[in-house]
Design a protein around this nucleic acid. Sequence first.
DNA 1: GCCGTTTTCGGCCCGACTGTTTTCAGTCG
Length: 568
Amino acid sequence: MTKQEAAAALRHYAVLLELLGEDPFRARAFENAARMLEMQPESLDVLIAENRLSAIRGIGKGVAAAICDLNSRGTFAELEEARQGVPSGVIELLRVEGLGPKKARALWKDAKVTSLAALENAIEAGLIERLSGFGAKTAQKFRTGLAFLKSTSGRHWRHHAARAAEALQESLKDMAGIREVFFGGSLRRGNETVGDLHVLIVADTGQTDTVRAGILALSCVSWSETGSGLRGESASAFPIELSVVTLDEAGARKILATGSEEHVRALKEVAASKGFSLDPQESGNVLRTESEEQVYAALGLAYVPPPLREGNNSVFAVGSRAFPDAVRLEQIRGILHCHTTASDGHHALRELAAAMIERGYEYLGVADHSQSAAYAHGLTPERVRAQWCEIDELNKELAPFRILKGTEVDILPDGRLDFDDELLAGFDFVAASIHSGFNMSEEDATARLCRALENPQVDILGHPTGRLLLERNGYPVNHRRLIDCAARHGKAIEMNCSPHRLDLDWHFLASAESRHVPVPLCPDAHHIEGLWDIRWGVEVAAKGPLTAANCPSTWSADEFLEWCASHA
DNA sequence: GCCGTTTTCGGCCCGACTGTTTTCAGTCG
C-alpha cells in the first residue's frame, strides 16, 4: 500500500467517526495523521520496516497500529466496525455542497435520509426545512447542490480515465492477435472530464473472434452485456465501451469512436454528399481505410486533430485552413506555481527541485500561499524573506537549475492583495488568486479579478473561476472582460493543470491567444507527483489550441523574467 | 487519538461566511 492510499483510508475513517457522532477531536487526529503521513519523504514500506511511524508528529501508538494493519491487510478493525455502522448512502450525502458531516448525521438520524434520492424526496416534500437547525435557505442550497451533482453524473476526472485506460492497455499487452488498442471519446479529445472509455481493439486479419473471446475472459473487467460491442466496468469501476474491429474499417471506426457527435454528424453529411458512408454497420458505399487521415482525405477535408473535433465548425476543405500546432509536453522548460511545506505543500523546496532536475526541467517557480490563507499556513512577510534566503542558497548549489521566487498571493474581497507592493516587488513573479469569499455576482467577481490584474506587481492570474470539476462551479466570471483586462495590462492568465480544476476553461484559450494574453500551464502542485499534472493541462490546452509561443512554460527562465519585468 | 506538561488531563489550525437563532453551529478553504 502507498502512503497516499493509507492516508485516504485514515481520512475515510475520520469521516465515518464524524458521521457516527464520535469525538470530533478523535476524527481530527486521524485526519491530521493522514496529512503528516503524506508529507513523509520515505515510502510506507520503509517507514514500517524501520519502525518509524510513531516517531512522526501526530502519529502515536494507535494510528501507527492502524497504518500497519492497512499495509498488511488493507484495512483495520475500527475502520471495518465504523463501516458497518454507517449506510453507504449517508457518505454520498457529503458530496452535496454545503452538506457536511454534522448535517448528514442529522438527516440520517432525524429524517431517515440515507441516500441522495431520499434527500431529494425529503426536500420536495418540505421535510428538510422543518428539521431543527435547517431552514428554507438550507433546503434551497441542497436543491442546487443536488442539481449540480445530477448535471455531472456519469462524468469522471480526466486523470481517473487515463489511469483506467492505462490499466486496460497493460492487461491487453500480451494478448495475441491485437494490432492496436485505441482510446477515443472525450479522453482522446482532451476534455476535462470523461464519461465512458471508448475503446477500439484493432485485430489482425482473421483474429477478430479470438481476440473478442480473449477480452471476454479478462479478469480485470466485468462485462455486463454483449451486443455488437462490449460494455463493461474496469476494476476501478470505470465504464468501458469496447469494440473489436478489422484493419480495413479502423479509420472510420476511430473517427466514430472519437466524436464529438456534432463533428461526426458534419463529417457524415459531407460523406453522404459525396456518395459515401462512414459507418461500416450501415449500408452504402462504406469508406474502408486503415487510418483516419485517409478518411478525411477521401472526403476532400483537412485532417482535424482530435482535440479540435468539438462542434460542427471544424470541418474544412483541404487547403482552406491550417490548424495551429498545440504546445507539447516536451516543450515545457519550467514549472510555475508549486507549493512547499512552508505553506500547505507536502515536500520541501529541495525535494521539488531535485525531482524536476531529474526530469530535465530548467526552473521551478515556487508560489506558496500568502498570510491571510491561515488554513494553508500562508507565509507572513518575515517567512517570505526567510524563504528568499533559502532559495538564494539553493540556487548557488543547484545551478544551472533555478528556483524562481514567487507567491500565490490572495486577492482580498475588494481586489486588493494580501501583501503590500513593496514586498510584492521583491518576488521574481507574482500570481494572484481568490481563495475565499466565493459568493459573488459576475460583476463583482470580474471587478475583483480585474483590480488584481491592474496591480503592476501582478504577473499571472491564478485559477480564474475557482471551479472544482465535478464538485463546484466556482464564482461566475465574465471571461471576455477578464481577457480584455489582462491584454490591456500585459498580464497572463494561468491554466491551472490540477485535474480537479483545469481552469482557465479551454473554451477561452483561443480568445486569450488572439489577444496575446500568455497562458502558462501551472500544476498548482502540492507534492512531487502533482508537478506532473502539467500533462493534463497540455492535453486540454490542445483544444484551444494553446501554442508554444503563447505559453510561458515553454520559455527560458530569463525570457519569463524579462516578460515579468516588461509590465512592472 | 495525540501531545505536552506547572504529566495522567485539557486543548487540539483559524477566520470568513452563512443560516438559523437571538448567541452560535456548521461548512469551507
